[in-house]
Design a protein around this nucleic acid. Structure first.
Lengths: 182, 182
DNA sequence: CGGTACATGTAATCTGTTACATGATTCA
DNA sequence: TGAATCATGTAACAGATTACATGTACCG
């Protein structure tokens, strides 16, 4: 039950709606956590039932009403307990690498296309992360403590995207040496 | 249904038992795919029912009997179709980064411990990958085509582990600047 | 008139995790 | 004698995905 805690940590800083959470999981949180809006709404519903969050309805003009969630004391305690618990290993599933295992047996062209697509994605993510970094995290040591962890998560994202981009170049240059198969 | 294809790609190269597959998912495949032995046995059972793999029982002396799986033609076609299909985005869940979001609100000591633990893990993985690289993939361009993709997957693992290790150092030096909280 | 952003959800299904279950061999 | 490795599985439950469902506002 770890999406629970990913949501609760996001609510530590500010109150959010399901929609806003989904957007955050799509961008800044995206490189270390992915979740669809359906999953988020379902989890928020459960969190509300368990009284780890509260919700208030906010009417808006020119936009649909929204439901803003905030942490409760109980949610806060649950988070604290989770931080002290053992950290689970990173879980990854990436089809791209599984497809690489088929090189020489199946269509290499398809794999090359997949790498190029991935290269575009990494470039976009990196540009986004760097923009966020230069706007909000230019002087890490001077950040207030509550922002330091968020900065480090961002930095990890930047490093991962950079490493992935370098890899994409190496991958493409090696893949063109593969005779067409499949 | 992507574990399906991750298993099928592993069977492209050689026939394997569920146990061997589980080990591979734990080590060399581990950085881009994780799966427990329970999940693997369940999936193999389904794959067998769908005739994407066949199995033969092998008796051993001094060891339990084992069940060795191989790809069928139908499994092979399923793989080919999958390679041509759109590549899904990488899916990640990593509690460590979620925990970073709690810095300044909760126990920083616990987060530091988690980073140190992760640093050990990355060092071990990197050492393993480098050993595999120097033993089997010293001259990438001279590899047979079927090994090039596998090498690239390994290289991605090496790059990721290196980037992660650099990050761990930066993270630890910034985290010690956080006043003790929680 | 069409697309995008805002905003929230349910139902059915599929996938993955946790707990349970067994049993031989080898090494210290 | 106890731990590790080999080897395979089931059952119950939790978590995630896919398909379906609705509706407004704003921009071009």
């Amino acid at each position: 039950m770890a999406l629970t805690h990913a949501i609760l940590t996001a609510l530590l800083e500010e109150d959010l709606t399901g929609y806003e959470l989904a957007k955050q999981f799509d961008v800044s949180l995206g490189f270390f956590w992915t979740a669809s809006h359906q999953q988020i709404y379902q989890t928020l519903k459960r969190l509300y039932a368990e009284e780890l969050v509260t919700a208030r309805e906010v009417s808006q003009t020119g936009k649909p009403d929204k439901r803003v969630y905030s942490l409760t004391d109980s949610g806060r305690r649950s988070l604290d307990a989770w931080v002290l618990s053992e950290t689970k290993k990173r879980k990854v599933t990436d089809e791209l690498f599984a497809k690489l295992y088929t090189v020489g047996h199946s269509s290499t062209a398809a794999v090359i296309d997949a790498v190029i697509q991935r290269q575009h994605d990494h470039r976009e993510k990196l540009a986004l992360y760097r923009k966020i970094e230069s706007r909000n995290y230019a002087a890490p040591l001077k950040l207030p403590d509550q922002r330091k962890g968020v900065y480090l998560a961002l930095l990890a994202g930047i490093r991962q995207e950079e490493a992935s981009l370098l890899w994409c170049e190496d991958a493409l240059s090696l893949l063109v040496s593969v005779s067409r198969v499949g």
